[in-house]
């Protein structure tokens, strides 16, 4: 039997060793949506929190903060990753594309964004930036051709509103049109 008395005590001791208090921030550079930025980050800041909390780029969503939902998907050096599980300091020098960086400077939507609107591939919209970044990553990877493959390769993006079939329609449409960049 487990020690249920354990439950009656809660909380951790503060970290004993260095660094005390607010540690020095570490300088890094990131190219975010084409713009090179010199930033100072604390070691525990994730890419997701950096984007949202520090840079006010709220397009990238926090849906679980644990790599379980895909809402925070961004393209890191062209590959899709969960930004919630990436410490910013470890990505020094990388190139990052978020949903804010997909449309053209003139506001022309990326074909995937267009397709999502046309196929009604979202409802509440909260998973949508992650879905779209993920789908753009999927196009580049080139491993998914059939609906079945799209479904499997998009399974890292949860949609609680249940827009899955429309998401697959949208991606299939973009694939068919060969509109991938």
């Amino acid at each position: 039997m487990a020690d249920l008395e354990f439950l009656a005590r809660q909380g951790f001791a503060p970290d004993a060793g260095p660094p005390k208090g607010l540690p020095d921030e570490i300088p890094i550079t990131l190219t975010i949506n084409g713009e090179r930025r010199a930033l100072h980050v604390r070691p525990w800041t994730t890419l997701l929190d950096l984007l949202r909390e520090d840079l006010s780029l709220y397009g990238t969503k926090k849906g679980c903060d644990h790599g379980q939902c895909g809402a925070c998907t961004v393209l890191l050096d062209g590959e899709r990753i969960n930004s919630c599980l990436a410490l910013a300091v470890t990505k020094d020098g990388s190139e990052l594309t978020t949903v804010e960086g997909l449309a053209g400077k003139d506001g022309t939507l990326h074909p995937m964004q267009e397709a999502f609107i046309e196929h009604d591939a979202f409802q509440c919209g909260y998973c949508t930036p992650g879905q779209i970044c993920s789908a753009v990553g999927l196009l580049k990877e080139g491993h998914a051709k059939t609906r079945e493959e799209i479904r499997e390769m998009m399974s890292g993006n949860l949609c609680r509103c249940g827009a899955y079939t429309n998401i697959v329609d949208a991606i299939e449409d973009v694939l068919a049109k060969g509109a991938a960049k």
């Binding site: 990753i81 969960n82 890292g156």
Partner: peptide, 9 residues
């Protein structure tokens, strides 16, 4: 295992 995103990282 996992997902495309996680496997990339």
């Amino acid at each position: 295992g996992a997902t495309a995103q996680l496997r990339n990282a």
